[in-house]
Simulated scan of single mutants.
Amino acid sequence: MNEILSLHDVSYTYSPQETEMRKALEGISFSVYDGEWIAIVGHNGSGKSTMAKLMNGLLFPQNGEVRVLGETLNEENLWAIRSQMGMVFQNPDNQFVGATVQDDVAFALENNGIPFIEMVERVHDSLAQVKMEKFLDSEPHHLSGGQKQRVAIAGALALKPRILIMDEATSMLDPQGREEVLTTVQRLRQETHLTVLSITHDLEEALLADRILVLNDGHIYAQGTPDEIFSRGEELIELGLDLPFALKLSKLMRANGIDLKDEHMSVQGLVNDVWTSNFNK
């Protein structure tokens, strides 16, 4: 596996002139490999947003280094490296600058000097990838929440990035919009080998990841597969996190005497277990 992004002993402290007068991150080290989906979770103030800013060069570490595609991120190579990273933020309305969907997707391409004919092709291709090609001339602000985020993803994909960073990208969406976005990202990852970094409060989103990093007060508290992380149960709740709905329901059902073979992370797994254990005898 090829390392595509890494933090090595990274620390960052906000200065007294800034709003947060505290050590946001201390001694953070981890690696992300090509094609992985990594979810970063933690309570408010754990350092998630600061980590996102460090990974895309909005901030530079005061100690340690951030390496992207084999290079140490610095002011000299910042723009070249950023061209390989797509960002999708919490509120899609804050990202829109074009009068129409196609204008918005083309904006970053124009800024990067992409020739017109290639730009048109990329706009159409990226919108087709997120199944929004029928909305070329629509005004972004008239779209649903899930559609807006898919357009934001198309804008990132048009730059042909190696890495997609989603910073609470589904937190403002209703369940249907959230499912649209996550299904899109899953499919894109399978089709294009895209590396995904998802900073999220949504545990159902975190379950889709290959690995989860749990941040707590500026440190990496734990990392592992979703099964390894959520098996910690009450330990996570004490950190201000929650457990996936299916896992909480599994625990409650077993505590009330319902026969289950296991505790489940997914609703489908729980439904199958209930069916085979109790109704298919």
Rank of each mutant, 00 (worst) to 15 (best):
I4K: 03
S6R: 13
S11G: 13
T13V: 12
S15A: 09
R22N: 14
K23G: 14
G27E: 13
V32T: 08
V32W: 14
Y33V: 03
Y33P: 00
E36C: 05
E36F: 01
I38A: 05
I40D: 14
I40E: 10
G42Q: 05
G45C: 02
K48E: 02
K53W: 04
N56V: 03
L59H: 11
G64L: 06
V68P: 00
V68Y: 05
G70C: 11
T72R: 15
L73D: 01
E76D: 13
L78N: 11
A80Y: 13
I81C: 13
S83T: 06
G86F: 04
P92R: 04
Q95F: 07
T100L: 04
T100S: 15
Q102G: 04
Q102R: 13
D103S: 08
A108S: 15
A108D: 15
A108E: 14
A108F: 11
L109K: 08
E110K: 12
N112L: 11
F116V: 02
R122M: 03
A128F: 03
Q129P: 11
V130S: 12
V130C: 09
V130M: 06
M132G: 08
P140Q: 02
H141S: 07
Q147K: 11
Q149A: 01
R150D: 12
V151G: 14
A152M: 14
I153C: 09
A154S: 13
A156M: 08
R162C: 00
L164M: 10
D167V: 01
A169V: 05
D174T: 02
P175Y: 00
G177Q: 01
R178Y: 02
E179Q: 13
E180G: 02
T184R: 08
T184H: 07
Q186A: 09
L188A: 09
R189T: 01
R189N: 07
T195M: 06
I199Y: 12
H201N: 13
D202P: 08
L203C: 06
L203T: 02
E204D: 15
E204C: 04
A206S: 12
A206W: 01
I212C: 02
L213P: 05
N216W: 03
D217K: 09
A222L: 09
D227C: 07
E228P: 13
E228G: 12
G233E: 11
L239S: 03
G240P: 15
D242H: 10
K248C: 08
S250N: 07
S250E: 07
R254D: 06
R254G: 07
G257I: 01
I258E: 10
L260H: 11
E263P: 15
M265Q: 14
S266F: 14
S266M: 12
V267Q: 15
V267F: 14
L270F: 00
L270V: 02
V271L: 13
N272F: 06
D273E: 09
W275P: 03
N278A: 06
F279I: 04
F279V: 05
N280A: 08
